[in-house]
Design a protein around this nucleic acid. Structure first.
Length: 224
DNA sequence: TTGTGATCATTA
DNA sequence: TAATGATCACAA
């Protein structure tokens, strides 16, 4: 099959999502002649890349939503047999310099999470990647409470960074969204504000949604 | 080199 | 066993 064109409307995207619900990742990959690794030790991003391809998301790493025309971000959500998220969800890189004037409203997190297409995958670790089943995808936008939680976590941790205290941040901070390393390995360094106001070198970081938060999104969705 | 797609694997 | 810190492939 040819590479699918980007969906031109939300309803078209949702139709495609319905079509793939219930298939395994391996079945989908075979249909589109997409590679199928035996494990994810070296291709951790494979589920997301396969789904992006099949649903017609813009390829590559651009600072725009996956479905640019309709402003929707695609996120796969790996679930246990019990239906709980197995992993945190990466959102975006954490800015560590040039924070002056940066606000929640103008933040990358706010933009990224404005409109998300969640695609649950039954992805317990004892299931080989190709046998993992795609669930029912659904659109989500943060409600007032969720946005308030995200904003509080963002502001609290960005303030620490602005104060030059990035090295005091670890994954335990944040009620629903944490900051953790996001790099090729622990030797990668980038600029950040230091305790005396100058620049220091530190590990690149990313914002991640905690599993408790994505689980709540899931429960709300399938309760309605 | 940096950002996007994430999961791996050791620690607590 | 959940969560934090570490890691991998690829594109631009």
């Amino acid at each position: 099959m040819l590479k699918p064109a980007p969906p031109t409307s939300v309803s078209e995207l949702l139709q495609r999502v319905e079509t793939i619900a219930g298939l395994t990742l391996g079945e989908l990959a075979a249909q589109y002649h997409f590679k199928s690794p035996d494990d994810l030790l070296r291709e951790k991003g494979w589920p997301g890349q396969l789904l992006e391809y099949v649903l017609g998301a813009s390829a590559g790493s651009k600072p725009v939503p996956d479905f640019e025309h309709i402003g929707i971000e695609l996120k796969t959500l790996p679930l246990s047999y019990a239906g709980k998220p197995l992993e945190t969800t990466y959102v975006s890189v954490v800015p560590l310099t040039n924070l002056t004037g940066l606000t929640w409203q103008s933040s990358s997190v706010k933009k990224k999470l404005n409109h998300v297409l969640w695609l649950p995958i039954l992805a317990e670790r004892d299931i080989p990647p190709i046998d993992r089943t795609i669930g029912t995808g659904f659109l989500w936008q943060p409600d007032a409470q969720q946005e308030a939680q995200l904003q509080r976590d963002w502001e609290e941790q960005i303030e620490l960074i602005a104060l030059g205290r990035v090295d005091e941040i670890s994954g335990h901070l944040g009620e629903v969204m944490q900051i953790r390393p996001k790099a090729a390995n622990s030797k990668v360094l980038t600029d950040a504000i230091g305790p005396r106001g100058g620049l220091i070198k530190t590990l690149p970081r990313g914002f991640y949604l905690k599993t408790q938060f994505t689980h709540t999104i899931l429960v709300n969705q399938f309760a309605n």
